[in-house]
Write a protein that binds this DNA or RNA. Structure first.
Lengths: 217, 217
DNA sequence: ACGTGTGAACCGATTCACAGCA
DNA sequence: TGCTGTGAATCGGTTCACACGT
């Protein structure tokens, strides 16, 4: 197989492979910034808790990106992974809920630096609606339907209270959202064609506490 | 095996089991609030994307908590899972970095409602030090060593920029922190006896985008 | 010689079917 | 009868050793 082919991968891979690609990409961007041109699978995985064969296998699902005996071109590989992930094009994101967390995400550099941009913001608090925050005017949540379809936005971040999260998810899906990044600590019920990722801090924290506690203090 | 036994589990289980326990617990708390007394493995997993045998097997690593032919007592099972996770006792947490995200976490109800309390806060910004935020006085990051050992705090949340995160992690570990909840988008290098959990929003988002993109818009 | 790419072997987690008990 | 608890079977992801190409 000489030709890179994103559409039909040789074998099926786990979703973890995709998550790891995202980590590799972050690492590559850091290396690029430090002026590194070539990197081996050994070097790039050294500080990632990932084995180098794992790295090579992850990439192998999508093509051949390295030179045998040499390594990988940092810049080229970064671009290839961006292409695989689909983040070489710009993705518009809607944010619902401008409380503490929502406001923080609006300012979060990790998103805006690249091709993931929060372009519309909703809230249900009359005191916030029409105010401008981080350069974006906060809209009434009831406008979500028309705004999302007009702007063709498919990704929605939910930063509302757990009590309201399901209702917001339902509204977003009715407005044709296809992907939800959920920050509320609840399990959302969605149709099979909608993707949900949960950012679940208390779950992470409790898992951490389990291991800490088990280790004896 | 009639006797519940947390110390020697029958077989080894995956860390995913622990993460799921945290989800079960959240669910049980919700059921309790709605006045539900008894729940079956089928019911509790219905909206969790987890199979009911998975639920039963997860619990089986730690004991027998249900009644055959009946189900599980909601309140009792919640208490048992809290005991397993170790969150039946109070855990003090230090937060480093009171930017947008840090401030949001200070107010986040998901932590403070239960036994996970942010009790000390650090920053390196002279303009913030000694100010009070959400009822907690912000301390100089250079005081982390003495404060953590004095108050015997083992859990540190890192909410600083990716450039500073490793340095903060090093300081925290020197101050005897044993668990790090890392919100900075970098991979931290830590000794083997320190537990790290990453809350990685851009990674989640990019994984979401991959599947969205692959599905065709 | 060196590091990538990958099929095959391995290992561990999930699933399943049913035994066990209320 | 109904639902739990679990050993055995299955499935899938990771690891490994080595062939391949430069």
């Amino acid at each position: 197989m000489k030709k890179t082919n994103y559409t039909k991968s040789k074998k099926s891979f786990s979703p973890e492979t995709i998550r790891r690609l995202s980590l590799y990409l972050r690492n590559l961007r850091g290396l690029k910034q430090r002026g590194v041109k070539i990197v081996s699978s050994e070097e790039i995985t050294r500080f990632l808790n990932i084995s180098s064969p794992q790295f090579r296998k992850d990439l192998s699902y999508f093509g051949e990106f390295g030179k045998r005996g040499v390594g990988y071109e940092v810049d080229k590989l970064a671009q290839e992974i961006e292409k695989i992930l689909g983040i070489n094009k710009e993705w518009k994101i809607a944010l619902v809920g401008v409380g503490g967390l929502g406001s923080a995400l609006l300012k979060f550099p990790g998103f805006s630096k690249f091709n993931e941009k929060i372009t519309v913001v909703f809230d249900n608090d009359a005191g916030k609606i029409n105010k401008v925050k981080s350069g974006i005017k906060i809209q009434d949540i009831n406008e979500i339907q028309q705004t999302l379809s007009k702007k063709n936005i498919k990704i929605v971040m939910i930063c509302v209270s757990p009590e309201n999260a399901q209702e917001i998810a339902d509204k977003a899906i009715k407005a044709n959202a296809r992907a939800i990044l959920n920050f509320a600590p609840v399990s959302l019920k969605v149709p099979k064609n909608v993707y949900v990722a949960n950012v679940d801090m208390s779950c992470e924290l409790e898992t951490l506490i389990y291991f800490l506690n088990k280790s004896g203090i």
